[in-house]
Design a protein around this nucleic acid. Structure first.
Length: 200
DNA sequence: AGCACGATTAACT
DNA sequence: GTTAATCGTGCTC
């Protein structure tokens, strides 16, 4: 336990799988001028190392993946499918490329704003996907690389209520169609149980 | 310079 | 269950 506030860099500078697991229950907060939106993290995936053929760092150090090689606690934000942004947090020691994809949150902060940004969608689907939560929290490439551990940061993760092991489920990561084994089946997706989930 | 594809989503049959 | 939308990235020629 610790006082409220952003998680320290040491939290992120550990094994990526542990970071993903322990991010469950923490609170993702998007800070904008006079506006706070966010919620409880309910699903996260670990991507670690150049050997992990599901990880973008499989291509080595490039302009896109450079952030993953840097210090932990920074945002790795990328664009995919021609229209979607994804939010990751860099993990592990500097020099080792790794990140945790935030896949789903339960909205608790600035719910009205979130609803407006997800106009037309039922509450259940406001932030239940990696691109959905980025849309709801107004997160895009402009925030790529920012440090989540500084006081004035625009994205932060605050200490929440830890989720016990009995409520955590570990399964293979989502959307890895062309990734070879064993990486395709590594149980590095962590999510809170007991919630209706449309996914396979 | 060109190309195939993606850590997805929403709408449709 | 199927599929269009839409473009940056990394790889091949």
């Amino acid at each position: 336990m610790q006082a409220p506030g952003s998680l320290p860099r040491e939290f992120y500078a550990r094994d990526t799988r542990l970071v993903a697991r322990e991010l469950l229950g923490m609170t993702l907060v998007r800070v904008e001028a006079g506006q706070r939106t966010g919620g409880t993290i309910t699903e996260a995936e670990a991507y670690r190392g150049e050997e992990d053929l599901a990880c973008h760092a499989r291509a080595g150090r490039t302009r896109r993946t450079e952030v993953m090689y840097g210090p932990a606690g920074h945002a790795y934000i990328y664009f995919t499918y021609g229209m979607h942004w994804m939010l990751n947090v860099v993990a592990e020691a500097e020099g080792f490329p790794a990140a945790v994809l935030i896949r789903s949150i339960h909205p608790t902060l600035g719910v009205e704003t979130i609803a407006a940004r997800r106009d037309g969608q039922p509450a259940q689907h406001w932030t239940d996907g990696p691109a959905k939560l980025c849309q709801a929290l107004n997160i895009d490439g402009r925030l790529h690389g920012i440090d989540l551990c500084t006081p004035e940061t625009e994205i932060r993760v605050e200490y929440g209520e830890p989720v016990p092991d009995t409520e955590v489920e570990a399964t293979p990561r989502i959307g890895l169609f062309t990734v070879p084994e064993p990486w395709k089946s590594m149980p590095w997706r962590f999510q809170v149980k007991n919630r209706i989930d449309r996914r396979k």
